[in-house]
Design a protein around this nucleic acid. Structure first.
Lengths: 206, 206
DNA sequence: GTCTATATCTGGATAGAC
DNA sequence: GTCTATCCAGATATAGAC
């Protein structure tokens, strides 16, 4: 049951997410958010005690999807399947949580000054666990001996770019907006490069 | 001959570049730049008419390196050589112009509100020309039929990430600072993925 | 060309009526 | 729970002495 409080908080977070993604934290005025949400500014402050608290709410909303994306590294035994699923999940985040993803990227670029240390630790732990998993696969001879860190950085960067640099991508492709097909072919290209580069063959379904 | 004017402008731009990269345009205070440069704030305004003018100077400083990086697409006839050289050039930019590169990325992320339309057009033209070149190589059967746009986006993202997300990379690798070796192995991994993915073999030197 | 002191304005946050 | 009017800290930019 959606109380008035919940509905409003949701509207404010959703709008804030768009504006923060567009302008960045510092350049965003709370009045921008209020105007775009069709509310008076004071209403924002009734629900969130400060601009920063609102920003943190937006920021934390992307943590769970990012953590979830790592699941294939735990559930899959073959590197090809795990990597493919991870790339797919990351591209889906760039598509379905484009704004929050961008806010997160901007935050990381500036050294994560607002991110809670709890979230940071979780993200770091999952990343390290997955990198360790890749290292094992290499030791077991299931993959070419690529540098697992750099492999991960390339996957992060190339999937994340469809959220962060959407403006650039739209400029270059001449699209008015990225479509489902665009995201799919992006995922396919990245997966191809990674699987061929790691010399693991795409596993057929069992 | 370095006049006092030139020396000071250079110092201010260099310092501004660091601070803008660290905090972003809006969050940067002109007094931060002044303090870090060891100058009184009014001195900044003696050399630059506004914070934005100074920011634009920083921003424009990265355009030329970015344009130069495309040269291998024009000078090289084999895709393998051109792609390898381009990746190397882009990684070198991430290393040697890390701060300006980051400022540029942040600018693009937010829709390039401060970038001159001239620079924008030049960058776009070079990008499109290079993408067209890749398309030709594919038609001539020199490369696998990958999507040239997505290939370019992946190269941009994976090379750019070493400047933009340096903080993250340092967190994960546990390094105190990225070394020449780190950049080299990054370039090697990205080049490997791209060349294998495009099914072009690394050309031996003639 | 340098720097202190200050004008001016923007934008986060709140008081208090409804 | 909503909203107008307002406060005030902080930041850009400048005036004007040196």
């Amino acid at each position: 049951m959606a109380t008035i409080r919940e509905r409003n908080k949701r509207l404010i977070i959703k709008t804030a997410c768009q504006v923060f993604a567009d302008k960045g934290f510092a350049a965003t005025k709370t009045s921008d958010i209020a105007d775009q949400a069709g509310l008076p500014k004071a209403n924002i402050y009734y629900y969130f005690k400060s601009k920063e608290a609102l920003y943190r709410a937006v920021l934390e909303s992307i943590i769970d999807p990012l953590l979830q994306a790592y699941s294939s590294f735990h559930s899959e035994h073959e590197p090809a399947r795990a990597l493919e699923a991870y790339i797919k999940a990351k591209i889906r985040i760039s598509r379905e949580h484009a704004d929050a993803s961008k806010v997160f990227a901007s935050e990381i670029m500036h050294g994560a000054p607002h991110l809670s240390s709890g979230s940071l630790e979780q993200l770091k732990a999952e990343a390290e666990r997955s990198i360790e998993r890749i290292r094992q696969w290499i030791e077991e001879g299931l993959m070419a001996p690529v540098d697992p860190h750099h492999l991960m950085f390339t996957i992060w960067a190339s999937t994340q770019t469809y959220a962060d640099f959407d403006w650039q991508i739209i400029q270059i492709t001449g699209r008015r907006k990225l479509t489902a097909k665009d995201y799919d072919s992006a995922a396919r290209l990245i997966t191809d490069l990674v699987l061929k580069g790691c010399e693991v063959q795409k596993a057929e379904d069992t």
